[in-house]
């Protein structure tokens, strides 16, 4: 009996295009759902998580001296051989790098240099906007690496930003807007 009813229901549904109506209802629902687009260069910018491996930077100690002791372990462990370190000894007998160059065009951002460093001097930060028209500009020297921004305390959010064609994408506020758009994706 119920089977016959089921079959009748199927036929009624077929005759009145129940499946097409279902599809239309679904797309109509999607039409008014929040869009997942992040308007990256124009309005918003993704702030990566703290564990993100972006552009390298060199750290300084409390005295403002460079932490790096020029042991060249990072250059040794680098799988793509993109770090070049030339050491020197200062008047107190401490080793420091005279030259510390990273070819970011070759770097694969594995973070092994950060792991190998015995002096906790090099790390990979959050900056990811450093494209260039020339691969020569991607070889970053010691002083530039010291000036690079370090790891941010917060991350994993969308912040307001604006495209500045002269400089870069400028972050307008440091406060993450605090929504995780992956969570807002409608899955059915």
């Amino acid at each position: 009996m119920s089977r016959a009813l089921d079959r009748a229901g199927t036929w009624i549904g077929w005759a009145f295009f129940a499946d097409l109506a279902n599809g239309l209802a679904l797309t109509f629902g999607y039409m008014f759902s929040r869009s997942v687009t992040m308007q990256y260069p124009d309005k918003e910018k993704w702030l990566p998580y703290a564990r993100y491996r972006g552009h390298h930077f060199l750290k300084r100690d409390e005295a403002g001296e460079i932490k790096c002791v020029a042991c060249e372990l990072c250059a040794r462990i680098c799988p793509c051989d993109c770090i070049e370190v030339v050491p020197y000894e200062d008047e107190n007998g401490n080793r420091h790098p005279a030259k510390f160059e990273i070819d970011t065009a070759r770097c694969l951002f594995c973070g092994l240099c950060e792991d190998a460093c015995p002096a906790d001097a090099i790390a990979l930060g959050q900056q990811y906007e450093f494209s260039s028209f020339s691969s020569r500009d991607l070889v970053i020297g010691r002083d530039d690496l010291l000036a690079k921004p370090g790891k941010a305390a917060t991350g994993g959010g969308v912040v307001a930003a604006r495209l500045n064609t002269q400089k870069d994408v400028l972050v307008e506020t440091n406060e993450p807007r605090g929504y995780n758009w992956w969570r807002n994706i409608r899955r059915t």
Partner: peptide, 14 residues
């Protein structure tokens, strides 16, 4: 625009 919003995009914005 309709295509974009049905597919959770924004469509032309710029």
């Amino acid at each position: 625009k309709i295509a974009g919003h049905i597919q959770q995009r924004m469509g032309p914005m710029r």
